[in-house]
């Protein structure tokens, strides 16, 4: 039984945290594992959308989330956060992007900062693939926009409601015309 460490405060992650960290088959030990993750996190921050193997995507997603949440929480004047950004981002121009672009972009988010999809793998390969992206990226969405699908239940209901409204309006108009005709014919009889 351990006591929780209290020296540093962290924000809660909005993604699922695995109970155990993956070793990622790194021959060089934990240092090499961090190196692998570092490359992926740097690529994610740089390109905003990457396709890679699932385990590595899932693992580096947590690290990217932590990096962004720390950047939002402590800002660029906090020495430890700066050191962390310096370690995790191999290309140093991305440090500016993290603090000046991504932190302001995500500051009001109530969801996770990244999104992950499973990607299809080509037949002879059985490795699970994934697409990892930052939210609010400039690329077109990966999932098709289903809002206008006529068969979706809310669209069906909306159509029916529209139809009912229209028939009601037509009836009203017809009633008005009837009344007008009646009055005209009554005047003519006089």
């Amino acid at each position: 039984m351990n006591q929780a460490e209290i020296s540093k405060l962290v924000s809660q992650l909005r993604v699922r945290v695995n109970p155990r960290l993956r070793k990622l088959k790194s021959a060089g030990g934990p240092e090499a594992r961090l190196d692998k993750l570092r490359k992926t996190v740097t690529a994610l921050i740089k390109h905003e959308r990457i396709e890679l193997n699932y385990p590595r995507a899932d693992e580096s997603r947590m690290y990217a989330e932590r990096l962004i949440s720390d950047a939002i929480r402590y800002g660029d004047c906090h020495r430890e956060t700066m050191e962390m950004a310096d370690f995790w981002l191999i290309e140093k121009q991305l440090v500016h992007k993290l603090f000046k672009v991504l932190a302001p972009r995500f500051v009001n988010y109530s969801t996770a900062y990244t999104r992950m999809y499973t990607a299809p793998s080509v037949y002879p390969e059985v490795v699970k693939r994934a697409v990892l992206e930052l939210r609010g990226n400039p690329y077109p969405s990966l999932v098709p926009d289903m809002h206008n699908n006529r068969n979706l239940i809310h669209n069906v209901l909306l159509d029916e409601a529209k139809k009912a409204y229209r028939t009601q309006k037509y009836e009203e108009i017809a009633a008005k015309i009837d009344a007008a005709e009646k009055s005209v014919s009554e005047e003519a009889r006089k």
Binding site: N2, K8, V10, E31, L34, Y63, R66, F87, W88
Partner: peptide, 16 residues
């Protein structure tokens, strides 16, 4: 390198 392992750090504490 252990001090840079953000997730290890996270898993040793309780979030704010």
């Amino acid at each position: 390198w252990e001090k840079y392992d953000l997730m290890k750090q996270y898993m040793r504490t309780v979030p704010e």
